[in-house]
């Protein structure tokens, strides 16, 4: 399916979805609350069949005060890709878990929780993935600093 056509089809699926500008592949921005439903529908639909969640990560837009969650979807049947993004506030980052739809989301969400502090509702096992449980803070947030870090000299 062509990129434009794909975007049209997906837009019809998702209520409240907008096309995300400035990306190099078909991309949508959706409300965070609709994520699990949308991903399940995208997976089940015959024409789309987005059965693989390649990647899930977040970006900390410090100035806007939001964390943007990115989901890279891939269809092993049709070979097309789709980026779904959703924004959650930095201060109260809560998003629904999609681990019921894609198994690997369980680990990807744990990594995003570890690095950004996003709390996933309905996650079966929300623990830190890479850092010690006693770690304070979430290092990939832009305002993260600790005593160990040294700035690169100019």
């Amino acid at each position: 399916m062509e990129a434009n056509e794909l975007q049209e089809v997906v837009l019809a699926f998702a209520s409240g979805a907008k096309v995300r500008e400035k990306t190099d592949r078909p991309s949508l921005t959706v409300p965070a609350a609709s994520l699990p439903d949308l991903l399940a529908k995208l997976k089940a639909d015959e024409r789309l069949s987005f059965d693989m969640l390649l990647d899930h990560t977040a970006v900390d837009w410090l100035e806007r005060g939001v964390l943007e969650l990115f989901y890279q979807l891939f269809s092993t049947r049709h070979g097309h890709t789709l980026t779904v993004s959703a924004e959650v506030p930095r201060e109260e980052p809560v998003a629904p878990s999609v681990s019921g739809v894609h198994l690997i989301a369980e680990w990807q969400e744990r990594e995003v929780y570890d690095m950004f502090g996003v709390l996933y509702e309905g996650h079966p096992d929300l623990r830190r993935l890479l850092l010690d449980d006693s770690w304070v803070g979430h290092p990939l947030r832009k305002d993260y600093r600790d005593d160990h870090m040294i700035e690169r000299p100019k």
Partner: peptide
Amino acid sequence: GACAISGGPFIYNNYS
């Protein structure tokens, strides 16, 4: 190796 001697390429802006 550099990492075991001094942290090597992972000295700056690194938390771990």
